[in-house]
Nucleic acid binder design. Structure first.
Lengths: 197, 197
DNA sequence: GCGCTTGGTGACTGGCGAGTAACCGTGCGG
DNA sequence: CCGCACGGTTACTCGCCAGTCACCAAGCGC
């Protein structure tokens, strides 16, 4: 098998294994085995376990961030922007997307390089969203950043909860609801009785 | 030193070490060393590393959940409830509270028991919040759960971003802003120009 | 059929860290 | 002053796993 093809295959297999088991539980032996190859081959393509992992997570991070950017750029209407972004999170979670799980379930909190990469998802996504907020709502950078981070968290945690909780809502309903929460706030939902402030 | 005191001390030291380094990077040797004691003593009090960690994280999880419950019970006004809960998250993050960090930065995604414990923070917090939503907004359980999870994520991720990003906002400003986002939604902020839906 | 490049392999080492076996000393009841 | 319980220690074993060393074989130009 030609060198570049092998490399791609190894990366694909490694991605699977890391997503399934996490960094620590995954072993280089298993990655090699599953690729139908012996360990030295793996080391001919990647200098070490950490570098392999870092390479994978780095592209995963970029892909998630790019997704957010695209969702934001897909429309000029802010309410629709919220919806599009929410849809992205929920779709990614529901599809068990590799990049998503690799990033959001990463164990390897010890390594600072990895930590930084993972944090980039929140910070760069927030930054992209914050830009829109600054432009359209005239808030300060700092304030916009905070709001944006909150929105990211809402999408991420909400989506994961929806999936794991075996909710009785369909994906579409969940997205709709989450978008409404983001756009109108919790106070915007119908009240049965009291209401203040 | 009497047995129970030693046990308490060991737990305190272990908490520090696990919070600082995470489960994998932490070693039983270091925990023992820092407690000024040799390893077998540690094993006289706890059957193994995993059990020690589980015990710590379990109480941490409970303490976070209790905090949320208290915040919700502190008032009858829903807008104030949102504010109180937000304040809890931000205060916990800003104070570098041990329980908080242990739970939200846990690496040990491989062990299912630990995973379940960590997930309980989101699910039980959400459940508590969802109860309020169901009571006051008349939404279905499933819908309320989803919204609640979104709010939890907003608080958690927002707070962490605010702290790590070295925002120029004070803690009070951040809490105010986050509460407003949760209550009124992103659409509720002043617009400079266009606005729809 | 010689040699050399390319894409491999099986079997090892080395270290780290969880967990343990065997031994120590001091105080206190009898 | 015996013994024994209790809180401790030193120095080990043992398994796991990242990373490596020495060795194979097929194709192919000549």
């Amino acid at each position: 098998m030609p060198r570049s093809a092998r490399r791609a295959q190894l990366q694909a297999v490694a991605l699977d294994v890391f997503v399934e088991q996490g960094y620590h539980a995954a072993s280089m032996d298993e990655i090699a085995d599953r690729a139908g190859v012996s360990k030295p081959v793996l080391y001919q393509h990647f200098p070490g376990k950490l570098e392999l992992y870092t390479a994978l997570i780095s592209t995963a991070v970029d892909s998630v961030i790019d997704g957010v950017r695209e969702a934001l750029a897909s429309t000029q209407d802010n309410a629709e922007r919220v919806q599009a972004t929410m849809q992205l999170w929920y779709d990614s979670v529901a599809d068990q997307e590799k990049a998503f799980r690799l990033v959001f379930e990463s164990d390897l909190t010890s390594d600072s390089a990895v930590r930084e990469l993972v944090d980039r998802v929140t910070s760069e996504s927030s930054a992209a969203i914050a830009d829109v907020i600054v432009a359209d709502a005239g808030l300060s950078q700092g304030a916009a950043r905070l709001l944006a981070a909150g929105l990211v968290g809402m999408g991420h945690v909400g989506a994961r909860a929806w999936l794991s909780g075996e909710s009785d809502l369909t994906r579409e309903q969940a997205i709709e609801l989450a978008s409404n929460l983001a756009w109108r706030g919790i106070g915007g939902f119908p009240q049965t009785q009291d209401r203040r402030s």
